[in-house]
């Protein structure tokens, strides 16, 4: 119980912080997108509570705006992967036969693939060849979310399939079928709720994974492009100047750490409750 609450509280706090970014900006009265060459790597001060980054922009405000991007990417990727994975897993379990075989072989294949090089490959692909505008922040986010979903649905689908198979085999479901409950209603009302706990766990972990992956892609120069801040690109930028300004690397690292820990706590909490 406490884990779940602690994790939820952490995440809620971070989400609130993300939402509060414009107010914080109004309160501090500095523009986190306008470079100030006189405040490069400035230490903490009343103007800049956490100091300033390599271009003299307020670190606190950038962390808050970065939270919008990082948490946004994480949540979007995890939710999309969970929905897709649950749907496909459910489909495989319910239809069985060749649908099941094809879906699960596909999942096996994706699991066997080395993820990072393929992420790199996808990240380096030219969005213009797919008809998307290049370099826009929204395209960046969309691209990263899409990449994460391609790999993310597999785990969820396997969990959902296993759960659905065991639920569909219960006497309870058989009885419901015998009573003439429609298949759609059966899946929606009786199977899906039984999958909620494992899928929630997988989803929480996927949020964590997405946030970490975004930071790795940023480190490789394939993540969210400036001037939009994300925790990943803030950390990646700061690590290059880590000897010059260690604090600039500390904050985004800490933010990622807290978010990932929050997700893990939630996952853990849900899992224990289910047990």
């Amino acid at each position: 119980m406490t884990r779940l609450h602690l994790g939820l509280a952490l995440l809620l706090l971070l989400l609130l912080a993300a939402v509060a970014a414009p107010w914080a900006q109004a309160w501090l009265g500095t523009d986190p997108f306008a470079p100030d060459l006189f405040a490069r790597y400035a230490g903490p001060s009343p103007d800049h509570p956490l100091g300033a980054d390599e271009l003299g922009r307020d670190l606190l405000l950038r962390l808050l705006y970065g939270a919008q991007v990082s948490l946004g990417v994480g949540l979007a990727a995890a939710l999309a992967a969970s929905v897709l994975g649950t749907a496909l897993g459910l489909l495989a379990a319910w239809r069985g036969g060749w649908v099941d075989a094809v879906l699960m072989r596909l999942a096996d294949g994706l699991l066997a693939l080395p993820a990072l090089p393929i992420l790199v490959l996808l990240a380096a692909m030219d969005p213009a060849k797919l008809g998307l505008p290049r370099g826009e922040a929204a395209t960046d986010m969309l691209r990263i979310v899409a990449i994460l979903v391609i790999f993310g649905w597999v785990g969820v689908a396997r969990l959902a399939r296993a759960g659905a198979l065991s639920l569909l085999a219960t006497d309870y479901i058989r009885a419901a079928r015998a009573l003439g409950v429609t298949e759609a209603r059966l899946l929606w009302r009786h199977v899906l709720p039984g999958l909620a706990a494992p899928v929630a766990v997988a989803c929480a972990l996927a949020v964590a994974g997405a946030i970490l992956t975004e930071s790795v892609l940023s480190f490789l120069g394939l993540g969210i492009q400036p001037p939009s801040p994300s925790w990943g690109n803030m950390l990646a930028n700061a690590q290059e100047a880590v000897f010059e300004a260690p604090l600039a690397a500390l904050w985004p690292g800490l933010a990622i750490l807290l978010a990932v820990a929050g997700c893990a706590l939630v996952a853990d909490g849900v899992a224990r409750r289910g047990r």
Binding site: L55, A124, R134, G221, Q225, P226
Partner: peptide, 21 residues
């Protein structure tokens, strides 16, 4: 690039940053 875009903004010019590998 970000510094220049900031300087141009002060004279009313909008330079939209779009980078590529």
């Amino acid at each position: 690039q970000q510094i220049l875009a900031g300087m141009w903004k002060t004279i009313g010019v909008d330079a939209r940053i779009r980078n590529e590998p």
